[in-house]
């Protein structure tokens, strides 16, 4: 039974392509300004308020590794893509319930567990679209501006965003089965992802509060470390995957028990 997966995948195709296009454009622009930016990087680094540097996890911004890790991954993947995954997942269940599509869907021989799993599985579409599209833009763009970045490291950096994005989706799907209104769920999930990202950045700067950041998903994904220092935190990725599975399990348990 993969009818739901097929239908959901088809539905996500358009928004995934549009988002990939937009973020690809943004990437191309940012890469285009990098050569000029690198020349004055020291000045910029000094002029940047430390808060902002810390928030984005910027280090060695004059190198392409630092630039891609600090700018591109922090903003494009952690923030924008994370928000998109949270937003899309937040609509998956509650929207079907509100529009009564769920009535018809659940009148067919499909279990509620399967409904949630197939809907979440459809996120392969934006995952693949964004990664393939943005990797291509980044790889080609770096060649065009005559810089070099180890493609293997870049691939790994891309792969390690997946657990993070899944956690964002997990936040969305839990809110989608708990909340009663589409608008609320689709506002709350992206807002939560943004706040968690902010909390991570802010607490990172203050030793006394750093422990609070341990509950934020972005704490377990450090693109700067991957690209600049070639440190691959597989344990952290495991933590994120575990968190995603827990969120998914919560969503399924709640959805199985609730009235629709």
């Amino acid at each position: 039974m993969t009818a739901i997966l097929r239908a959901e995948s088809r539905q996500l195709t358009r928004s995934s392509i549009v988002l990939t296009g937009l973020l690809g454009l943004l990437l191309a622009f940012v890469l285009a300004v990098f050569p000029g930016f690198a020349e004055e990087a020291e000045l910029i680094e000094e002029a940047f308020p430390p808060v902002l540097l810390g928030l984005l996890g910027i280090e060695e911004i004059h190198t392409i590794e630092g630039f891609v890790g600090g700018y591109v991954f922090s903003i494009v993947w952690l923030l924008f893509a994370g928000i998109y995954f949270a937003y899309v997942s937040a609509g998956m269940i509650v929207d079907d319930i509100r529009t009564r599509r769920m009535d018809l869907l659940l009148s067919t021989p499909v279990s509620r567990e399967s409904v949630v799993l197939q809907k979440v599985a459809a996120l392969w579409v934006p995952l693949v679209a964004l990664h393939v599209g943005l990797f291509a833009v980044l790889y080609v763009g770096i060649q065009v501006i005559s810089e070099t970045l180890d493609p293997a490291t870049l691939v790994l950096a891309h792969l390690l965003t997946v657990p993070y994005l899944l956690v964002c989706a997990g936040i969305g799907i839990v809110l989608s089965v708990v909340l009663e209104r589409v608008e609320t769920a689709q506002a709350a999930a992206p807002a939560l992802v943004f706040v968690l990202w902010l909390v991570d950045g802010l607490t990172h700067m203050d030793q006394d509060f750093e422990w609070i950041g341990a509950i934020t998903p972005s704490r377990y994904f450090d693109p700067g470390a991957i690209l600049v220092h070639e440190e691959y935190a597989f344990t952290d990725a495991g933590v994120l995957l575990a968190a995603f599975l827990v969120l998914l399990a919560i969503a399924i348990v709640v959805f199985v028990r609730r009235d629709i």
């Binding site: 097929r6 599509r101 009535d103 018809l104 009148s107």
Partner: peptide
Amino acid sequence: KSAVGYLPDTLGFEERLTGRQVLDYFARMR
């Protein structure tokens, strides 16, 4: 439920799909 048909009072179909696509969808289900 594989031997049950249901016509709800309020019909919730995926609005952007064509009628044929909706039927294809339910055909895959049962």
